[in-house]
Design a protein around this nucleic acid. Structure first.
Length: 257
DNA sequence: GTTGAGCGTT
């Protein structure tokens, strides 16, 4: 099997998004989660039985149901806990990962050509999704571009998409990143690193990674040596929390600023 | 009139 794209959607009736497989034909859960934050698996409707079937998931790797993914539309699974009412505020339900309520934030666009205008930026990013705002930062006196700007999208999924790739704008490669200077005005407590308390000595970095990847792409797991009963898990994107949380295996989690 | 890692006049 070779590299291909599989069609993935939030719901059977929603427009699918194409997601790349690996060279061996498998699909990484982290690739799915990059477009559908909080995803923990995939399912599909069997053309034979007409029942929903789960896609085999082994250690973060999704395996094609048959010899290949064929042309089916795969539907994203989310942890069952996400569907619980938030007023329970227990365990995993306290973690804000539900898709669609994620607020967008301004993204800094680095590496713009000097000639690129706000209209150029808007025209370019509108091909990803609805754009709320674009700015090109300029020298106050001369009006010359400083070579960077900002963009804000309506939908968080568009923002994630924009951040996940490089951009060819007017002949130069540009990057969209979360600005480190100013956070959004009404953002909740956010961090890319969470403190994981009450760890047991037998917990491995890989186990932590496997667990937390349902909330987003994990970029680092730190376990102090010698054993100190805590760990840090760092995400690629900001990880929004309502506050101090417990997750389902009973270990405490809180943001690390 | 130049430049090419960075971080936002209102």
């Amino acid at each position: 099997m070779t590299e291909c794209y599989i069609r993935v959607a939030e719901d059977e009736n929603e427009e699918p998004m194409e997601i790349p497989s690996e060279e061996d034909g498998t699909v990484l859960l982290s690739t799915v989660a990059a477009q559908f934050p909080g995803a923990c698996g995939l399912r599909y409707r069997s053309p034979v039985s007409q029942c929903m079937r789960g896609v085999r998931l082994v250690e973060g790797v999704l395996h094609a149901p048959e010899s290949d993914w064929s042309n089916l539309v795969y539907v994203v699974n989310y942890p069952k806990d996400n569907k619980r009412k938030m007023d329970e505020m227990d365990a995993a339900s306290a973690v804000k990962i539900k898709r669609g309520v994620q607020k967008t934030s301004d993204l800094i666009v680095l590496g713009l050509p000097w000639k690129t205008s706000e209209q150029d930026l808007k025209d370019y990013f509108n091909t990803f999704g609805e754009v709320i705002m674009v700015q090109v930062k300029r020298d106050a006196k001369t009006g010359n571009s400083k070579g960077f700007g900002f963009v804000r999208f309506t939908d968080y999924e568009t923002q994630v998409k924009a951040m996940s790739q490089r951009h060819m704008i007017d002949g130069r490669w540009c990057d969209c990143k979360l600005p480190n200077s100013k956070a959004g005005p009404d953002e909740p407590m956010r961090s890319r690193k969470v403190f994981v308390g009450r760890c047991t000595e037998d917990m491995t970095a890989d186990e932590l990674r496997q667990f937390f990847m349902q909330y987003g792409e994990v970029t680092d797991v730190f376990i102090p040596k010698p054993f100190r009963a805590f760990a840090f898990v760092t995400f690629l994107l900001f990880f929004s929390l309502y506050g101090y949380n417990l997750f389902c295996v009973g270990h405490s989690v809180c943001p690390h600023i």
